[in-house]
């Protein structure tokens, strides 16, 4: 396989992970209009749940993974209930500050927790991820095959959920106009809880796949992927689900290509991503697919 194709595939894999995380940002922003700063740490937590269930409690990998996704999703709901909901009518910036607090809380909780701590931990990668498959003449590693496939499956499931189910319709309605939807009798709180559930579950899947791809765990590993995924959400047009996916893939590809073609600048890889973020915020804040939010005079 040519180097270029290999890089393209790497970018695609990374992009699908960004897409999974970016969904969470975009869903919450679309509905509550605030940046859930703690989302990256939710993503990080999923890896540690798996670590706990697999290494400490010795559960089989698939069960540990399922539990990790469920617990992470539950965490998202609880955080919204405890920390965000009381501030729903407060200035939006208060919500943002609280989310920063939650982010720091989650990250540092890992340091405090027994068996986890501040030092790097191994991630339990299952056998089917490390196995090498042979398709025709091409030999391909499990991670490169499964990560984008599972991610894509989750994204498709999400699209189905949002565009074909009742909950999804309620979510879209609230995103358009929260007050009117409330007047029409929808249970706003329930729908918002669902949103956090879905967003966090996707982030959890992303976290586990991330661990398979880069098998290390660290308490602050959520911060940078979180910011990059937020960038992806902005690039695609924040509030727009398809946009978040598109942005995720685009950013993943761009990042890998940046490193591939400018290897001597690889230390500035994140500076490149933040540059993209700032430029988009400044010149195309609605992203590629987003609709402008009009300010009422």
């Amino acid at each position: 396989m040519s180097i270029f194709l290999q890089q393209l595939l790497n970018g695609f894999t990374l992009g699908s992970l960004y897409a999974l995380i970016a969904i969470g940002y975009t869903l919450v922003y679309g509905i509550l209009r605030f940046i859930n700063f703690a989302h990256g740490d939710i993503f990080m937590f999923a890896g540690y749940w798996l670590f706990y269930w697999f290494f400490i409690f010795q559960l089989p990998w698939w069960l540990a993974a399922l539990l990790a996704v469920a617990l992470t999703a539950g965490m998202g709901v609880v955080i919204e209930r405890v920390a965000y909901r009381p501030l729903r009518h407060a200035p939006r910036i208060s919500l943002f500050i609280t989310a920063m607090g939650v982010s720091f809380l989650l990250g540092n909780t890992i340091i405090v927790l027994p068996w986890a701590g501040g030092r790097q931990k191994p991630f339990p990668t299952p056998a089917f991820m490390t196995q090498v498959y042979t398709v025709g003449t091409v030999r391909i590693q499990g991670v490169t095959l499964w990560v984008p496939l599972i991610a894509a499956a989750c994204l498709l499931a999400l699209l189905f959920l949002v565009y074909r189910t009742k909950v999804g319709r309620a979510m879209r309605a609230i995103a358009t106009d929260i007050e009117t939807t409330a007047l029409m009798g929808a249970d706003i709180n329930r729908v918002i809880s669902y949103t956090f559930l879905v967003g966090s579950a996707l982030a959890a899947v992303g976290g586990i796949l991330w661990g398979c791809r880069y098998p290390r765990l660290q308490w602050d590993m959520g911060v940078l992927p979180g910011l990059r995924s937020f960038t992806a959400a902005v690039v695609g047009g924040i509030g727009n689900i398809v946009g978040a996916m598109l942005g995720g893939y685009l950013l993943g590809l761009a990042e890998i290509l940046f490193v591939a073609f400018l290897p001597h600048l690889s230390g500035l890889r994140d500076a490149f991503v933040f540059g993209v973020l700032i430029l988009f915020l400044l010149f195309k804040p609605t992203g590629i697919l987003g609709k402008p939010l009009k300010e009422k005079v």
Binding site: F34, I35, R92, I93, F96, L227, F230, G267, L268, D270, A271, F274, G275, L277, I278, L281, L282, P285
Partner: peptide, 25 residues
Amino acid sequence: PALRALRGDYLAIATLGFGEILFLL
């Protein structure tokens, strides 16, 4: 550029990104 175009959490994220860029530099 940022204060002209951005406010609220967008401004926050843009300035955060700039701070990180300074760190990386």
